[in-house]
């Protein structure tokens, strides 16, 4: 068993109204940042998961997303393996 760092990105589903992204977009435009085509809000959850290998850590993160971390009615999720083993006590 080793510890694996997993990043879960959760975003509103495409096509679904994202008022947060829209507000950020407007704010960027008013600050003079031109040419920003689209802004989506969202959140990330960082996990450190004990598992025998990265594949198992990803699988467990998938299960966490399905059960709790994302709501499929309104959100999509993306799992990124941020790195391999995290040394104990890091």
């Amino acid at each position: 068993m080793s510890r694996h760092r997993v990043e879960v990105l959760i975003r509103p589903r495409p096509g679904l109204l994202d008022p947060e992204g829209k507000a950020i977009h407007h704010a960027l435009a008013s600050l003079g940042f031109q040419g920003v085509e689209e802004v989506r809000g969202g959140k990330s959850v960082s996990l450190e998961v004990e598992a025998k290998d990265p594949a198992e850590a990803r699988e467990r993160a998938e299960e966490m997303c399905r059960k709790l971390l994302a709501n499929p009615v309104m959100e999509d999720y993306e799992i990124q393996m941020a790195g391999d083993d995290v040394p104990e006590g890091a």
């Binding site: 509103p12 679904l16 109204l17 008022p19 947060e20 507000a23 709501n71 009615v73 309104m74």
Partner: peptide
């Protein structure tokens, strides 16, 4: 109730934020 699946759908952030 929506999160628990007892009712369909979800409640998003208010349109006007």
């Amino acid at each position: 109730l929506c999160e628990a699946g007892l009712l369909p759908g979800a409640l998003l952030r208010n349109e006007g934020l």
